[in-house]
Simulated scan of single mutants.
Amino acid sequence: MEISEGFHFLKVEKRGVVDSSSLLAIRDRKGFSCVEIGGGGEANIRQTLGLFEASGLAIENLHTVIISHTHADHMGAIAHFRGLLPALTVVDHALDAPYLRDNSLLEKAFDADLVAERFPGTRFSILDFYAAFCPISQTEPDRTVVEGDRIECGDYAFEVLHTPGHHPGHISLYERRLGLLFVGDMVGMEVPFYTPSSGGVEGYTASLRKYLALDVRRILPSHGDPIESPREAVENALAKVGRREERLMEALRLGPRTFHELLPELFRSPSQHVFPGAALLASHLGKLEREGVVGEEPDGRFVLL
């Protein structure tokens, strides 16, 4: 889909447990830049190349990749394309760069140790998860950006927004002239996901509220279709987070509850309690504890204060 002259939204259709992210491709005199590069593995790479070809973009003309955050579906193929294109420039947020250099740090960002604490004998590894469904890779960024920086792409200029919550170094990109906002995984996901080590629920909701202060006419998400009612979509995401918290509060009004007794308030299916349930619940309980609303008793049960 051509959003504006030389500005393409390359949508990836949902087909598996972890799908490659959609991409932005922006033409310029040197070739083209790309926001995201998709997941690793032969099938994902073939899909990305097919998207480029369908839009008339020759892979040898790709000169810059901007990464919203180091999750496999967004950048897992980066090592492959860097090997194919040695002069490729990789742009990443300064807080995301350590994860791009060393994928093993993602275990902390996903709070894998929380699973071991709350589910003794259960091992959760995001790298094992990615290896099974969407391979990841690592590389050294050539340029790091922070909040307020500008990234020039042909006739367009993106303002960098640091939007943590989903990941510590997650960025969104705002093209002010067109009123376009690329949000990565912050809006458009079926299940908004945030972890304590990635900014938690406070970081996630603060990032969403940052969007509401902008003049946005269209949102481009990493998963799903372009969003033509951006304010409504952001407010719906905030409301979904609010409903999660209210369900926890309703349960606690009935009396003390353990961590495991609260998990079904967020996810009915036990298959989701380890991931993503544990991190989401810990994010909400941490927020409520910091606000002085909830406390944890010596026996491990949570109570309203």
Rank of each mutant, 00 (worst) to 15 (best):
G300W: 01
H170C: 10
R143Y: 08
V12K: 09
D299S: 06
T144S: 08
M249D: 05
P120A: 11
L304F: 01
H170M: 12
E235I: 07
L84M: 15
Y211L: 05
C134W: 04
P264Q: 09
V35R: 02
P221L: 09
S172H: 02
S21E: 02
F302S: 07
N61H: 14
T205W: 02
G292L: 01
S20D: 07
A112K: 00
S222C: 15
L62Q: 08
V90Y: 00
E235L: 15
T122Y: 10
S283L: 06
I37N: 08
E202F: 08
G154Q: 07
E5F: 02
H162Y: 04
D225G: 03
G83Q: 06
Y204Q: 07
P164I: 09
L280M: 15
A112R: 00
L106G: 13
V115A: 14
P221F: 09
L88E: 04
L127V: 06
L106H: 03
E265F: 01
D73R: 11
S33Y: 03
D149M: 01
V234S: 04
R253I: 01
L238V: 09
A132M: 10
D142R: 00
F110N: 09
H273Q: 12
G203Q: 03
N44P: 02
L100E: 04
G31D: 07
F193E: 10
P192R: 09
L173Y: 05
M249L: 15
A58E: 14
T163F: 00
P256N: 12
P276K: 09
D149G: 03
G39V: 10
E291S: 12
M189S: 11
I171T: 15
L49H: 04
R143L: 15
R243H: 13
E250N: 14
L214A: 13
V91L: 05
E228G: 08
V303M: 04
L10Y: 07
I171Q: 02
H167G: 14
R209A: 09
P276I: 08
L285A: 12
L304R: 06
L51F: 04
D19H: 04
F81M: 08
G38L: 06
L85V: 10
D19W: 03
L10G: 07
E42M: 06
E53G: 07
S21L: 02
E289N: 03
Q138Y: 08
D102H: 07
A79W: 02
N103K: 14
S271L: 12
D155N: 14
H170T: 10
F267I: 02
E117S: 13
